[in-house]
Simulated assay, not measured.
Amino acid sequence: MPLDEDKYPSETGRRRFVKGVVGSAALSSVGVGGAVALDTATSPSGVGGGITQFIGIENTDGPAPRGMPLVPLTIDDEGALMGRWPEVKTETVQGREVTIAETNIGGTTYSAAWFQYCGIQTAEGLAPEADQDNFFRSVSGSELTWQSENKEGDEKLFVEDFADYQEWGNGIGQSGLGKPAKAKWRSEGDVQTIPVQVMRSPEVSKMANGEGRYSDLPGEVQDFIGAATEQDFMAWLNKCTHFCCVPGFKTYEGSAKFNAENAVYCQCHQSVYDPFSPVSKSFVALPRPGE
Rank of each mutant, 00 (worst) to 15 (best):
S148N: 11
K19C: 02
A37P: 07
E87P: 03
G248W: 01
V36R: 01
Y252N: 12
V22M: 14
T103D: 13
D77L: 00
G95C: 11
E188L: 02
T109R: 11
P2R: 06
K281N: 11
Q197A: 10
Q231R: 11
D39E: 14
Y214E: 08
F258V: 11
V246T: 13
D131K: 08
D76W: 07
W168P: 01
S140C: 04
Q147R: 01
G34R: 05
P218I: 02
T145Y: 08
K239L: 15
N209M: 06
S142Q: 04
Q132W: 06
C266H: 04
F258S: 14
P289A: 12
E253D: 13
L70W: 01
T40I: 12
C245H: 04
V279D: 07
I75A: 06
D76K: 10
F249M: 09
G226R: 09
Y214I: 04
V71H: 02
P275S: 10
S140T: 01
L73P: 00
D216S: 15
C266W: 01
V32K: 11
R96C: 03
G107H: 00
G119D: 09
E124Y: 09
V88Q: 04
V21I: 12
A285C: 10
D161S: 08
C240F: 01
E129S: 14
G46Y: 07
G83L: 04
Q192K: 11
N150D: 06
R137V: 03
